[in-house]
């Protein structure tokens, strides 16, 4: 090494990114909500004060109190515990209902976006066909065929949802493909797989990740809707949609039965949305 003083070790990109991220209130709020949600989802047994399935027939439909912060339901089950136990189901839904759509959609979109031609045309028509149907109606129809339950719900949502990821990825890949570094990759003799997945995709993925965040919020809403309709999670399992459905007959007398899981949906959805928005800001390229 020469006598020239080298600049101090440069902070890694991740460190710089996190520093910028945690300076953003939206990111911090969203992140905090999601960390809390995740903790509740992973350790409901530790954090819930009562057994979510234990009846207490001496405490039926009690309003919020110190003993039962969120009140109790028509079987005397503690609503707070039920809402907390529902976190593991709903956070699972947020993840599993979207992650396969993400993987399938990104791969398909990247490939048709890169090659274009006939494959792209066929893909385009398939996408048109799928998005012509109202999302919820199509998902309900698929669940109706497969039968209710969480796994079938994941299958149904994935079957419809992947096209949104694919469309987004396809457009981004096509934009990136026009850059000279893609042509340079070809001249350098790189394989198409290498060019698509190592060169183009890392530059195309940011908007997809942002969309994924918002989509997880939508997946919770959709999962709860299906739960409410009796097509998703099945009672007595605690799931926010199911809980709201159970409370709907008692809306005038025991409003907390529907309201507290509703609040949980809103807060968690807000967390995902805030994080998604903040990421969209952070990942926007600057002068590159």
């Amino acid at each position: 090494m020469s006598a020239v003083t080298l600049p101090a070790a440069r902070p890694s990109r991740l460190k710089a990114f996190l520093a910028r991220a945690f300076a953003k209130p939206a990111f911090v709020t969203g992140f905090a909500i999601l960390v809390l949600s995740l903790a509740l989802a992973l350790f409901p047994g530790v954090l819930a004060p009562y057994d979510p399935l234990a009846f207490d027939l001496d405490a039926i439909q009690q309003g919020p109190s110190l003993a039962h912060l969120f009140g109790t339901d028509n079987f005397g089950r503690d609503m707070l515990s039920r809402v907390i136990w529902a976190y593991s189901v709903d956070m699972q839904m947020a993840f599993f209902a979207t992650v396969f759509a993400l993987l399938i959609g990104v791969t398909t979109g990247a490939i048709v976006g890169y090659y274009g031609g006939i494959a792209d045309m066929i893909f385009g028509r398939c996408v048109d066909a799928i998005i012509t149907f109202p999302f919820l109606v199509l998902v309900i129809a698929i669940v109706a065929v497969l039968g209710p339950g969480l796994v079938n719900m994941y299958v149904a949502i994935t079957a419809v949802n992947w096209v949104y990821y694919a469309r987004l990825t396809r457009a981004e890949i096509m934009a990136q493909k026009a850059n000279d570094y893609a042509a340079a990759g070809r001249v350098l003799g790189y394989s198409d797989t290498r060019i698509i997945f190592r060169h183009l995709l890392p530059n195309a993925i940011s908007p997809v990740i942002v969309y994924w965040m918002t989509d997880m919020a939508l997946a919770i809403l959709l999962g709860s809707s299906l739960g409410y309709l009796g097509l998703g999670a099945q009672p007595p399992a605690a799931e926010w949609g199911v809980l709201i459905a159970e409370g709907r007959n008692f809306l005038m007398t025991a409003w907390w039965m529907s309201l507290t899981p509703g609040i949980a949906i809103v807060v968690t959805g807000l967390g995902f949305s805030l994080l998604g928005d903040a990421l969209a800001d952070l990942l926007r390229p600057k002068g590159r």
């Binding site: 570094y181 001249v187 350098l188 590159r288």
Partner: peptide, 24 residues
Amino acid sequence: RRRAYNRRVQMMFQDPYTSLNPRM
């Protein structure tokens, strides 16, 4: 065969801002 040819014949591009992968 194409790889072998391109090993011998390389190209350099006009736009310095898009010819390098920004994430590498």
